[in-house]
């Protein structure tokens, strides 16, 4: 009986196995990159805005406190996007002829809102609250990154659920004293874990079991 397969069939099988594994691995890599990468999360991407507002200039350069503009951040779920009047507090006199600021002046004159593009946009089925995070010792920087060094605003973190859970499972890794929440130059001390555990007690942060329950954020 003649051989059904030529000798080369052995190598063909081996080569196709290698190709199969490579293709599966490549597909998995594409899938993971899609799911967790900036294409989906928009992490690190600046957005087109009506006015190229620079946090680096206003916060890092001039030293304005976050709360000068985001006035409701300590007492509300929403940090607050400042009304045009807040811009005009200074820009009535400073850079008052700049063409870059024309949309601000137009908005102030006509009462039309400036249509900013939301950068940190959580899905509508997540109920995030700024005030509780501040009350429990989470610094602005922990979620928003080094805003004082961002000429244009971008999302510094992925904002995906596993990123939220990283802190909700072990808050002691990130908590800081309440008087340091708005400090853009804060550095974690060497004994952060010990300090964090102490702050958990002091600020009555609930247990990881409680704050990782689904209904804490999805209700």
């Amino acid at each position: 009986m003649p051989q059904l397969f030529p000798h080369s069939a052995n190598s063909s099988v081996r080569v196709s196995l290698v190709i199969l594994v490579t293709v599966v691995a490549a597909l998995a890599w594409v899938g993971v990159s899609y799911q967790y990468g900036p294409y989906t999360t928009r992490q690190g991407q600046t957005r087109e805005q009506p006015v190229p507002f620079s946090h680096a200039h206003h916060v890092g350069g001039l030293g304005l406190d976050c709360r000068y503009c985001h006035t409701s951040v300590e007492g509300s779920s929403f940090a607050g996007i400042p009304p045009t009047k807040t811009c005009m507090n200074c820009h009535a006199q400073i850079w008052s002829g700049s063409s870059m600021l024309a949309p601000v002046r137009d908005s102030f004159r006509t009462g039309e809102s400036i249509r900013w593009t939301k950068v940190h946009d959580l899905p509508d089925f997540v109920y995030f609250q700024h005030d509780i995070h501040i009350a429990k010792g989470v610094g602005c920087q922990s979620c928003h990154g080094d805003v004082d060094r961002m000429p244009l605003m971008y999302q510094a973190k992925s904002l995906q659920m596993r990123w939220c859970l990283d802190c909700h499972r072990a808050p002691e890794k990130y908590l800081r004293p309440k008087d340091q929440i708005f400090n853009t130059e804060y550095t974690y001390p060497a004994n952060q874990l010990a300090l964090g555990r102490q702050l958990i007690q002091q600020y009555h942060v609930r247990s990881p079991q409680d704050i990782t329950s689904c209904s804490t954020c999805h209700h």
């Binding site: 939301k118 899905p123 509508d124």
Partner: peptide
């Protein structure tokens, strides 16, 4: 699901 037909702060 991501964007539900409801008002959140500043939604036009």
């Amino acid at each position: 699901m991501y964007n539900q037909p409801k008002y959140v702060p500043m939604r036009p």
